[in-house]
Amino acid sequence: MTFRLSSDAIRLVIPALSLSLLLAAVFWLQPRAMSYIGLNLLFNLAVPIALATIAQMLVMAVNDLDLSMGAFVSFVACVTATFLRDAPVIGILILAGAVAAYAAIGVVIHLRDLPSIVVTLGMSFVWGGLAVLLLPAPGGRAPDWVRWLMTVKPPLAPMAIVASIIIAVIAHFIVKRSSLGVLIRGVGGNQRSVERAGWSIVAARATAYALAGLFAVLAGIALVGLTTSADANIALRYTLLSIAGVILGGGEFIGGRVSPIGAVIGALTLTLAGSFLSFLRISPDWQIGAQGAILIIVLALRLMLNRLEKREKRR
């Protein structure tokens, strides 16, 4: 048990280290960021990205990949800015239906043994189309309670940090501490042995997808709380950002090896990378490219650490 814990802890070292390095660099470049307001501004947009990353992580835990994440979060944002404000009951019903649809996708993928990449690719068109139907032009308004929730100023630490910690802790308990989480990761690790042990794989996959849908819904709501209005293309970047966040946080594509705390840290790192680059006054032309470079550097660090870990084990 102690060994498992330490192995998990080691997987968290690199994400945590790269986040603190990046944060230190930002503070060094712009000391004024080292304040309550500064931190809030730096990490504000991280909350929806962290939620989307957790959602992607849940899908990756069962060895699937969700390419519809960005379109789905955009769709939820559109629902939040229209129905959830004007007709909360209908809005909640739509969002509940969307979560149910996610569970259904999980069931279909399992029963027909379909490649998740293609099914979610198709779903990304469906969500995108629904979003365009709801909001053909950017618009809508965030419900007041959502706006309040995202702009509330808790004592000691800014909302963005508090929310990230809460998200990480809740996801940690679901994925790492509950029997459901063990089951989901088990499906990713060795589906057949979980099946032989008498568990229902369909149910496990459906639950993983439903939970992913739930977190993605929260991501969409949080995003509208920050932007105050929505657009059908508002979150398309989230598909790739969420995958990159999971990997940065020490997760793997296969084998059910995922880390919720790492995923949240990965999302924070990606958000911070953007701010870091603008503080460096890099020409806007190269901003995306530098983000790619940061991704590569962090992964190179991880490789080095993995090698060290292996060497330790051999001793």
């Binding site: 027909r112 043994d113 379909l114 293609v118 198709g122 995108g128 189309g129 629904l130």
Partner: peptide, 28 residues
Amino acid sequence: LGAGIRLIMTGLIIISVIMLAGGRRGMR
């Protein structure tokens, strides 16, 4: 049909095609 319906139909058609043709070996 409008852009929204068109996107939804495209998605549903992709999924139906893969359901009809697929299911041999998923990416697991």
